[in-house]
Design a binder for these strands. Structure first.
Lengths: 126, 126
DNA sequence: GTTGACCTTAACACTGGTGTCAGGGTTTAT
DNA sequence: ATAAACCCTGACACCAGTGTTAAGGTCAAC
């Protein structure tokens, strides 16, 4: 199938499909006219790429284990677990940072509300 | 004082001080030789900018109320509270997203551990 | 009068996946 | 044979603050 068809089937833009190729994630054959020709299996490949992108992995990281997970169960691919672990640590770090900012924001908001206490502003929020 | 001195006093790079100026956050006078000349009050201004940047506000947002909060209490500046509220909503949205990813990651990790539980971790791999 | 520390503006790089042009070739259907 | 609908590569824009470099002006000390 051609790139436009694959894009329609997967919901991924033509632009993104070309980008994935440039990152080594998917390699269609080329027809005589230069057009990319995708195997029907490419649909599953793209769906798999989407899955890992949604987990916050980069295309570079995905390229390290994609061909393995396409042929085996994840548990068989040794590269996956360490990536999940470091990604999880990354998420935890971001959560801490966001929660710290959230805490500071709420503190300042409370302080403002208190000073405005004389002015009686609504206050239905928590 | 000159820009290098202000940078030392505040811990903000010369590059960043110039950037803040380009964003309209601080406006030093110019000496005859073209050098920026900062008032001693600039130290407090920069510290205030740092504070709001650390709350996740952009320089553009800060520019909207900086001159007010430098002269009054935050509660007096009407622009602040709506910004805090929208920023808080933004943080909450990011927290939800990160927690969703974290949940998915942990689920997949658990699934892998389970599959590896059955067999040996051995595997001289492919 | 020269060295070195400081200042100036301007500009590119970075992060990374995606949108969007520009400029041009191919195919298909009418 | 021409128009519509595809395809191709290459490149800029985006977010937004900071690092870094280039090319050059100013000033103080020795």
């Amino acid at each position: 199938m051609k790139i436009g068809e694959l894009a329609t089937l997967t919901g991924v833009s033509v632009r993104s499909l070309r980008y994935y190729e440039s990152q080594g994630l998917i390699t269609p054959v080329r027809q005589a006219n230069g057009y990319r020709e995708y195997s029907p299996l490419a649909v599953e490949t793209v769906e798999t790429i989407k899955l890992y992108l949604n987990l916050g992995l980069s295309t570079e990281q995905i390229s390290g284990f994609l061909h393995c997970v396409l042929r085996n169960k994840e548990a068989f691919c040794a590269e996956v677990m360490p990536l999940y672990e470091s990604k999880l640590a990354d998420i935890e770090r971001q959560l801490l940072e966001l929660n710290q900012i959230k805490h500071n924001l709420k503190e300042r908001m409370a302080s403002i509300m208190q000073e405005q206490g004389g002015k009686q502003i609504d206050n239905t929020s928590e």
